[in-house]
């Protein structure tokens, strides 16, 4: 008889260990089915949370073989096929304190969530007695971000958060975005600025959040939007914005990136000279960078500049 082995990470408040459970294989089952089967037939002390069973309550996120998933909607067959194995390792979400076994503590996240004012700051156009008018197009902008079920998978997968607890969890950035683009919200900056102040530019562009989000929310595009808005708000005096603007300007000049001037544009001449000199010498020595060789404008640069002008003109008209 085919079996599946689960190696589950246990934690009792002081001690952490892996425990193995073997269950008979059944086709068409989910991770949650297996966890329940183990708890009810083998070990009533196995602790995990689950509620709705259909991916709307966000209770049952765990990591399986290092990937965060909703246990309720994740097919065992699929996992066994992808990983070419009959052994699955189940661990609690990363980047959360663990309470017991697979149960994590959400309290610190709720506190951080509050920093982006995760509530509508209503415009004068509406009132509690009248509600608002909002067009279907305006609704569509908030349709996807309000799919978020706060399951914590994006937090668990975030590679910046793993190194830097100051960084806001992607679901929190999603919440900031959700209000910033809501036509009923009077103060987008009040949602965006706290994100900027919590290392918005440190997102690594690793796309782990987008890849694992059970609601397929395009957190990458939301983060890009938040960054664009901080630049529009005039917040350009930081390495992230300067770095992005350097690309933007270089391409207009020559069509290509200028690697030699990039650090100077991003960090300033002083910091580059004092901090980057050993680095630069290393690159010059190996021939990786030649400070004398700089990009020349590409063929068709005039066309590129016309595209810049065209896009900017259109955007100017839209605003």
């Amino acid at each position: 008889m085919r079996t599946i082995t689960f190696r589950i990470q246990r934690y009792d408040g002081s001690r952490s260990w892996f425990q193995e459970y073997v269950i008979p294989y059944e086709s068409g089952r989910t991770v949650l089915w297996a966890l329940i089967k183990i708890r009810e037939e083998q070990d009533p002390t196995l602790t995990f949370t689950a509620a709705c069973r259909h991916a709307i309550c966000g209770s049952c996120a765990v990591r399986v073989n290092g990937h965060s998933v909703l246990a309720c909607k994740t097919s065992l067959d699929e996992l066994l096929k992808v990983f070419q194995t009959d052994v699955l390792e189940v661990t609690p979400l990363s980047n959360f304190p663990v309470i017991r076994d697979l149960v994590v503590d959400w309290r610190p996240k709720t506190e951080r969530l509050k920093t982006v004012k995760p509530w509508l700051i209503p415009t004068q156009a509406g009132s509690a007695a009248t509600g608002f008018a909002q067009s279907p197009q305006e609704y569509r902008r908030i349709a996807s971000p309000t799919d978020c079920i706060q399951c914590g998978i994006c937090s668990s997968e975030c590679e910046q958060l793993a190194e830097n607890p100051r960084f806001l969890d992607p679901f929190i950035l999603n919440r900031a975005y959700r209000f910033a683009v809501d036509s009923r919200d009077a103060a987008p900056e009040e949602h965006i600025r706290p994100a900027l102040e919590s290392d918005l530019w440190k997102c690594l562009h690793c796309y782990q959040c987008v890849t694992h989000c059970p609601k397929e929310i395009r957190l990458d595009q939301e983060i890009a939007y938040l960054r664009q808005q901080t630049i529009r708000m005039g917040e350009t005096d930081n390495p992230g914005a300067r770095h992005a603007l350097a690309f933007h300007d270089d391409v207009r000049n020559t069509g290509r990136l200028d690697e030699v001037t990039l650090p100077i544009k991003t960090e300033g001449l002083l910091r580059t000279v004092t901090r980057r000199l050993p680095f630069a010498m290393r690159l010059i020595r190996t021939g990786k960078v030649n400070p004398l060789q700089r990009p020349r404008p590409v063929r068709g640069i005039e066309g590129i500049r016309k595209i810049y002008a065209h896009v900017k003109e259109k955007e100017g008209k839209r605003q």
């Binding site: 690309f247 990136l257 595209i307 065209h310």
Partner: peptide, 26 residues
């Protein structure tokens, strides 16, 4: 490709999405 330009490297996208789209369309 003759005259190709920088893809934006996810950075131009952080400044101006529409521009990045047009440049890559080119």
């Amino acid at each position: 490709l003759e005259g190709w330009s920088c893809c934006g490297a996810s950075h131009i996208q952080d400044v101006d999405e529409e521009l990045a789209l047009a440049l890559n369309a080119r």
